[in-house]
Design a protein around this nucleic acid. Structure first.
Length: 243
DNA sequence: AACGTTGACAACCGCAGTAAA
DNA sequence: GTTTACTGCGGTTGTCAACGT
């Protein structure tokens, strides 16, 4: 087993790290994060891997601006449940607790600032929040367009749309992975091609790979530990570490 | 053009709950 | 019953781009 730097990486994730993580989560499922962190050679903590997966890489996540409907729902649910972000997130498919938390934080800061200005205004209620919120520049734009029925898109809106569509690369990553899978791709292809791993010695079709090509997440703990200590697996992970 | 401020987002940290050993 | 590792959650901080002056 090749051991590279013991130093744990922190900070922003690179695309290469994302790909590696996606590959290994596809293999082992959304659990055993410490294990995934170790065998993937990412030099990240399991916690960090888990967070990256659930907040960014997991399929089906929405990215970009909250819709007015989502904003309203967050306000309503927060008034009901308080800072139970994960609970709130469950009611907003595709949104993470972190995202909602961030949104709320920003929103509350804005609201607090405006309340300071309008200190004469009365107590805080949901309706206050809603009205204050809909007075934000973004919503004003949206409302205006809805009201006059025009299809005009402001510069800001188009930027945001562009961001939502173009900046986030995960769709592409998942498309790539899907196409690999549909093309009868193997574990070796996944790790070597997608994760840009070393393919020397040449990729082989081992029992390990054959087993997990179809149902990588469907293994019990005994299998799991057997595989984890197998030569094939050592080869694969050392390839990653060395890359 | 330069600089400061703000907003949005990503990531880390600490704590608590839970399950397995 | 205790310990340990893992996981989930909420709070907080850091970074960067957009915006305003």
């Amino acid at each position: 087993m090749v051991v590279v730097s013991e130093k744990i990486r922190k900070g922003p994730w690179t695309e290469q790290e994302d790909l590696q993580l996606v590959c290994f989560v596809s293999l082992f499922g959304e659990r055993r994060w410490d294990f995934i962190a170790k065998v993937s050679g990412l030099n990240r903590t399991g916690k960090s891997c888990r967070l990256r997966w659930f907040n960014y890489l997991q399929p089906g996540l929405k990215h970009g601006r909250m819709t007015p409907q989502e904003e309203r729902l967050i306000l309503e649910l927060h008034s009901e449940w308080g800072n139970r972000w994960s609970r709130i997130a469950r009611r907003l498919p595709g949104r993470t607790d972190n995202e909602i938390k961030n949104y709320w934080r920003t929103h509350m800061r804005k609201t607090a600032q405006e309340r300071k200005k309008n200190s004469s205004s009365s107590a805080s209620t949901i309706s206050t929040c809603l009205s204050t919120h809909s007075a934000s520049p973004l919503d004003a734009t949206t409302t205006k367009n809805e009201e006059d029925g025009s299809s005009l898109i402001t510069e800001k809106e188009s930027r945001e749309k562009e961001y939502a569509v173009n900046v986030y690369p995960m769709e592409q990553i998942w498309n790539d992975i899907a196409s690999l899978e549909s093309g009868g791709s193997s574990f070796a292809q996944c790790t070597v091609e997608r994760c840009n791993l070393s393919s020397d010695p040449p990729p082989m079709t081992s029992p390990v790979q054959e087993h997990f090509v179809d149902y990588p997440w469907m293994m019990d703990d005994n299998e799991f530990s057997k595989i984890a200590t197998s030569n094939d697996f050592r080869f694969l992970t050392s390839g990653i570490v060395e890359s």
